[in-house]
Design a protein around this nucleic acid. Structure first.
Length: 281
DNA sequence: GTACTTGTTAAACT
DNA sequence: TAGTTTAACAAGTA
């Protein structure tokens, strides 16, 4: 699932390949995946590519923006050859020609080049929004965990009001944005904190180390080009590298990187949590 | 056929 | 009011 590092990886590459290109055609193959007026998009140029939390924003010369959320299975794959055959991770033989049966929206550029929005489960979306709507959308997210506005002091204050388990609190985008299930599990393991602990029970010192751990795993994720646990791919169709260094996520029965004990799996809020009951206390 | 998977949000709660 | 809980979305895998 794309989280902050995966979306950031996509944003960086998109900046290299679609900036200043003119959108000549938009093929919406699934209505649910594209919201808004195509007329405001066709014939316009992409003037910037930015990201906040897990949302991508393509600013267009017409003044409107395209906001893109990949949710769990979304991919943005760019092709300039016109005969793309998917790249793949060295360890798998994923090959796919595009458009595929999961391609929901196709953006064609005048300059040669095509951007495919694939989304197996159709939770993701692309929407056309005005400046005002962009601000409204972005205001619903707290700053990213890597943003200088987020400090251990701020987290201590917010956590003190929350009785919910810390795992769920750090994944709440209204508190701090960009931490999904993979990095939440890994950050808690690195900080040696039990995911079940009520947020308000954490000491200042624990909040400090959790903050540092979260920034560390997210930064590592960006460095390695994201995690391909399920079906994440970058803009070139390639897998990321974080899955090779992942600490606990989906490692039930494996060894804890801190202490070697067995990693267990539990459910929190209907979601899987992986942690080491021996050193995460 | 059945259970299970997940990021986010809306709605129903306390 | 603010915080918490739950269901819903969709389509694939086991």
């Amino acid at each position: 699932m794309p989280e902050l590092p995966e979306v950031e990886t996509i944003a960086r590459r998109l900046r290299q390949v679609i900036l200043d290109k003119k959108i000549s055609r938009v093929d919406v193959r699934r209505d649910k995946s594209f919201q808004g007026d195509l007329a405001q998009v066709i014939g316009t140029t992409i003037t910037s590519v930015t990201r906040k939390a897990k949302v991508l924003r393509l600013e267009l010369s017409s003044g409107v923006s395209l906001l893109i959320h990949l949710k769990m299975t979304g991919q943005l794959i760019y092709d300039e050859s016109g005969k793309r055959v998917g790249g793949g991770h060295p360890t798998d033989d994923w090959v796919e020609s595009l458009p595929s049966k999961h391609t929901r929206v196709v953006l064609d550029f005048e300059q040669p080049g095509t951007l495919y929005f694939n989304d197996m489960r159709v939770f993701g979306w692309i929407k056309v929004v005005t400046l005002e709507e962009v601000e409204k959308e972005m205001a619903s997210y707290a700053p990213d965990i890597t943003d200088s506005q987020i400090s251990p002091k701020y987290l201590v204050k917010v956590f003190s009001r929350r009785t919910q388990p810390i795992k769920q609190v750090i994944m709440d985008n209204a508190i701090v944005a960009g931490i999904g299930n993979i990095y939440a599990n890994d950050a808690l393991n690195l900080a040696k904190i039990n995911p079940l602990r009520p947020a308000k029970s954490l000491t200042k010192k624990e909040v400090q180390s959790l903050y540092e751990a979260a920034v560390a795993v997210i930064t590592k994720g960006i460095e390695l080009g994201g995690a391909t646990i399920d079906n994440y791919r970058n803009v070139d169709g390639m897998a990321g590298g974080y899955q090779d260094v992942v600490r606990v996520y989906q490692k039930e029965g494996g060894s804890c990187p801190n202490c070697g004990s067995k990693i267990i799996r539990i459910k929190q809020g209907g979601r899987s949590t992986f942690y080491c009951p021996s050193c995460q206390i």
